[in-house]
């Protein structure tokens, strides 16, 4: 298999529906908690080390072959907000559709049969990485990077932030993405023998609360 599959999967233009979501940034902008590049950077760091780490570990574990049903239950338990659970399953369903077209695979077919309403997106991401011949570290990188690139791209639209500033945020958080991917892969290996309790459960209270605030809004730019 080819390393370039990683670029295909991580590309923001990969048709998996991610562009419609801000990763909680829209709620934070509306609440006045993000007003510029500095806040965005702080937001991205916080998201990366919490839900980003959890998503990366779930994706790496799925890529390693940990049971997707156990991982999906672990993802539910790590996502108290029903709005965020709904978003994760919707994004999982959309990713699975694109992944099955790109990398036809029995594991992806089985996942679609087991979760007709969609599995959590990081679980689908991990199984997709495996189908594309990528390794658990690649899956962890995709999830960790997505946890910061989603909000950074969204805030460019929400605040008319200079895209150069947003890209600067991504560049400055890159070494922390490395750290998170490393931690995620170590935890995923531990989960292979010790079960899903070995996965991190880091949470961000304002992302949870903000998701519930956001879902109650009559009009919004991003779905989440």
């Amino acid at each position: 298999m080819t390393r370039a599959a990683l670029l295909v999967l991580a590309d923001g233009r990969f048709p998996a529906g991610g562009h419609a979501h801000s990763g909680g940034a829209e709620a934070a902008v509306r609440a006045g908690r993000i007003t510029g590049a500095a806040d965005l950077e702080d937001f991205c760091r916080g998201r990366l080390h919490t839900t980003g780490l959890v998503a990366a570990a779930l994706a790496a574990a799925a890529a390693l072959g940990v049971d997707p049903v156990a991982l999906d239950e672990a993802a539910d338990a790590r996502t108290p907000s029903p709005a965020l659970r709904g978003t994760a399953r919707k994004l999982g369903r959309q990713l699975l559709r694109a992944a099955r077209a790109a990398w036809p695979d029995a594991g992806l077919d089985a996942l679609a049969r087991t979760f007709p309403r969609g599995a959590h997106q990081p679980v689908v991401l991990g199984v997709t990485a495996r189908a594309a011949g990528l390794d658990p570290r690649d899956a962890a990188y995709c999830a960790a990077y997505e946890s910061v690139s989603g909000p950074a791209t969204a805030v460019v639209r929400l605040l008319s932030l200079d895209p150069f500033d947003a890209t600067g945020v991504l560049a400055r958080t890159a070494d922390e993405v490395d750290l998170v991917a490393d931690r995620a892969v170590r935890a995923a290996r531990a989960a292979l023998t010790g079960g899903v309790d070995a996965l991190p459960a880091a949470s961000a209270p304002l992302l949870e609360i903000g998701a519930e605030v956001h879902t109650a809004l009559p009009t919004r730019l991003f779905a989440s």
Partner: peptide, 8 residues
């Protein structure tokens, strides 16, 4: 990082 920021 970010524990006291706008996401957490």
């Amino acid at each position: 990082g970010g524990w006291d920021g706008p996401a957490v």
